[in-house]
Design a protein around this nucleic acid. Structure first.
Length: 492
RNA sequence: GCACCGGUGGCGAAGUGGCUAACGCACAGGUCUGCAAAACCUGCAUUCGCGGGUUCAACUCCCGCCCGGUGCUCCA
């Protein structure tokens, strides 16, 4: 089985396979670390994580590189406002970014490349471009890419630039450029700005050249897959292609994946619209990291996703159903042997799950057979027709599901705890939902003690006291379930 | 303005030229339970934005229209 993934470059579903037959080499545009990441950022990284995990599940080896843009206009501006060098400004946000990825269970790429640690590679690339006649320097010392030197420009985004003549909507300050659409490779230092002394002058790299230089440094001149948010398709990726291929005359990447935008309440997220959320904002409101992950990956990556709080609640409840089922399978004792019906159902579910994922990562479709199997198994358990061997078969399917989705195992306590600690340190206590505080104040031991007390009360048929305890726990987000195999509890 | 994407039950969301239009959430009734919860059963779109057309047959293909979103500029 191979993954058929939509390829922006070819405009169709293409098989995604390593060119060398051994290891898939992929590059993903990472964050610009000028602030905390918002959920739109994380949608892209979550979808790439889905891709990663599914490829690994199919047995593929990966070499996945992600960059960190730790120098750019916004960073320079924010650092200046804070009165510190950018090297002191960005680490906090780099750390926060990785902490957030961890909360969302996004796997780390095999390599992380920071822009500021690869300035020399960027300079080299610009020199090569200059030698090839594709780069030129203007009066103030900045370097630009000569679009006229790359006739294929526009092949990724399918833009016809012929009609877009120089003229309208041109930044009048940039009259030094040969053509209005030529883009910056290197920005000459203005007084007081962060800059590097290099062979091509004193300044800092443009954004696009970073990715070209680092991608080729880590993955070679031509690699398998390049991914990023849909907004990067033009001009960022188009520019990467132009810069790289003008020098190498080889395709930078064979396959291009673009994750579509996340909208909030039907609109693009923006601070001015007031619909802007970071991961931390949501955690402090009491939403679980797993619910956020589930909500963001359940809509296939090639569709816009409309984020709502109702959607988070739905995801929370769907995960609860999966977790309850998993708990039931693990904690119930079954008779020996296996049943044909369940074995067949498990095989079918697994096959349908893989088919859906292999078809352009259709996560929405992939969920269906899992829930189908869940119901089939529950029904069999209710009827006493579910055997020990069936448990193993069904757990195996759930494991394959969770190898990608990673929401069944409950690891929600840590992210919440971290977010609360951060809120305190960042002075954001006012944003913490009161219910959340009540919940975290209750330890597992407290719960166990209360559950034991309730069981004792029930035994004495003191139902009033038993119900009182149950309601008390429910108020703090703990649900109790009585079953033949004992009492189960879980945090809502 | 140009380009692209979408409009499927209360909500989210798959999907196919022709079997009963997945799945999740929510809701209603029932079974189980001391009561619950969980689980299961039943119900919940004679219908897939609107109007034409092609076809034996369209939600699925074509044309037009309406609505929503995004891109064309820094942006995941």
């Amino acid at each position: 089985m191979t993954l058929h993934l939509f390829n922006t470059l070819s405009g169709q579903l293409d098989e995604l396979v390593p060119a060398d037959g051994a290891e898939l080499r992929m590059y993903v545009c990472g964050p610009t670390v000028y602030d905390y990441g918002h959920i739109g950022n994380f949608r892209t990284f979550l979808e790439v994580d889905v891709l990663r995990r599914f490829l690994k599940l199919m047995g593929m080896r990966l070499r996945h590189v992600m960059n960190i843009t730790d120098v750019d206009d916004k960073i320079i501006r924010n650092a200046a406002a804070a009165g510190i060098p950018i090297g002191e400004y960005t680490p906090k946000f780099v750390d926060a970014f990785f902490e957030d990825l961890e909360s969302l269970r996004v796997e780390r790429p095999e390599a992380i490349a920071r822009a500021t640690e690869h300035i020399d590679k960027m300079v080299e690339l610009i020199q090569k471009l200059a030698a090839a006649g594709a780069a030129y320097q203007v009066e103030d010392g900045s370097w630009y890419f000569r679009l006229a030197a790359f006739p294929e420009y526009g092949k990724l985004s399918k833009k016809d630039l012929s009609g877009m003549e120089d003229g309208a909507r041109v930044d009048v300050d940039e009259y030094e450029k040969d053509s209005a659409r030529d883009f910056a490779l290197w920005k000459a230092a203005k007084p007081g700005e962060t800059a590097w002394e290099t062979a091509i002058g004193r300044g800092r790299p443009g954004w696009h050249i970073e990715c070209s230089a680092m991608a080729m440094e880590y993955l070679g001149e031509s690699f398998d897959l390049h991914a990023g948010g849909e907004d990067l398709m033009f001009p960022h990726h188009e520019n990467e292609i132009a810069q790289s291929e003008s020098v190498t005359h080889k395709p930078l990447a064979r396959h291009w994946m673009h994750v579509r935008f996340l909208l909030v309440d039907g609109k693009k997220m923006s601070k001015s619209e007031g619909n802007f959320y970071t991961l931390r904002d949501l955690l402090l409101k009491g939403y679980k990291a797993s619910a956020i992950r589930m909500a963001l990956i359940s809509v296939p990556y090639r569709h816009q996703l409309n984020f709502t709080f109702d959607g988070l609640t739905e995801a929370t409840n769907a995960i609860d159903r999966l977790r309850t089922f998993h708990q039931r399978l693990s904690q119930t004792s079954f008779g020996p042997g296996e049943s044909d019906a369940i074995q067949v159902a498990a095989h079918k579910a697994r096959a349908e799950y893989f088919d859906a994922m292999a078809n352009d990562l259709n996560t929405a479709e992939a969920r269906a057979p899992i829930f189908d199997l869940l119901r089939t198994a529950n029904t069999a358990i209710d009827k006493g027709q579910f055997l020990a061997g069936d448990r193993d078969a069904v757990l195996k399917v759930l494991a394959d599901f969770d190898a990608v989705f990673d929401v069944i195992a409950d690891r929600d306590a840590e992210p919440t705890k971290r977010a609360l600690a951060w809120a305190e340190q960042a002075g954001r206590q006012a944003d913490v939902a009161p219910e959340l505080l009540a919940r975290v104040a209750l330890s597992d031991d407290d719960i166990e003690n209360l559950v034991a007390e309730r069981t004792q009360a029930k035994k004495l048929r003191n139902f009033a006291r038993a119900d009182q305890i149950r309601n008390e726990l429910l108020d703090k987000g703990v649900v109790i379930e009585d079953s033949k195999d004992g009492v189960r509890w879980k945090r809502k």
